[in-house]
């Protein structure tokens, strides 16, 4: 029990560091909401190693901490909408047979972007910003594949060393 809490604490820290590292890497190409999604490495691994509850816990803590440290209140609402939808989809996708970390991560990336864009449309009451969707789908798919690949490599190497 104690070990698990300590481990989850470490995962929150790791996710927070990834969030910071991501702000240093210019990847948006002028499209709002486009990003690498490094944090999703942590969430995919948590989903596989522990379960959806733990992943949700770490994700929400990460968003609030990152929001207060580097962003605004508004950024929190925006990230939260993407993260919650993405986590729901990933939890479901994990149960599909013949679907590995890469598939789960791709769906996670894509739906993170869809969730954010949807909330953005509601907030500004302008559906024309939907024209960002193709670019966001593309980035969600490609970065999702990359993140899933990394997560699988990490899992293959250190999965047996994690206290569950």
């Amino acid at each position: 029990m104690g070990n698990k809490v300590a481990c989850l604490g470490l995962f929150v820290t790791l996710a927070l560091i990834f969030t910071y590292v991501e702000t240093l890497i210019p990847f948006s190409f002028g499209v709002p909401g486009m990003k690498l999604g490094l944090t999703n490495i942590v969430l995919v691994l948590l989903l596989y190693w522990y379960g959806p509850k733990e992943a949700l816990f770490v994700s929400i803590l990460r968003i609030f901490l990152a929001g207060f440290l580097f962003g605004s209140f508004f950024g929190i609402l925006y990230s939260l909408s993407g993260a919650l939808l993405s986590l729901c989809i990933m939890t479901g996708a994990r149960k599909i047979q013949d679907f590995g970390m890469i598939g789960v991560s791709i769906l996670g990336g894509v739906f993170h972007n869809i969730g954010q864009l949807f909330v953005a449309m509601i907030v500004v009451s302008n559906y024309h910003i939907g024209f960002y969707l193709p670019a966001l789908l593309l980035s969600g798919t490609v970065t999702g594949w990359f993140i899933g690949f990394l997560a699988r490599q990490i899992s293959m190497r250190i999965s047996n060393k994690i206290e569950k």
Binding site: S28, F29, G30, V31, P32, G33, F70, G71, S72, F74, G75, Y78, A120, V123, V124, S125, N126, H128, I129, F131, Y132
Partner: peptide, 30 residues
């Protein structure tokens, strides 16, 4: 004026239906 600066990093617009969005301020330039 916000810490996110997402709209500042968006590319310049000059074609039909292109937008710049500032979420905290609820601004859309189309």
């Amino acid at each position: 004026g916000c810490p996110d600066q997402i709209c500042v990093r968006e590319k310049a617009i000059w074609k039909n239906k292109e937008t710049i969005v500032c979420l905290p301020n609820k601004i859309v330039v189309e």
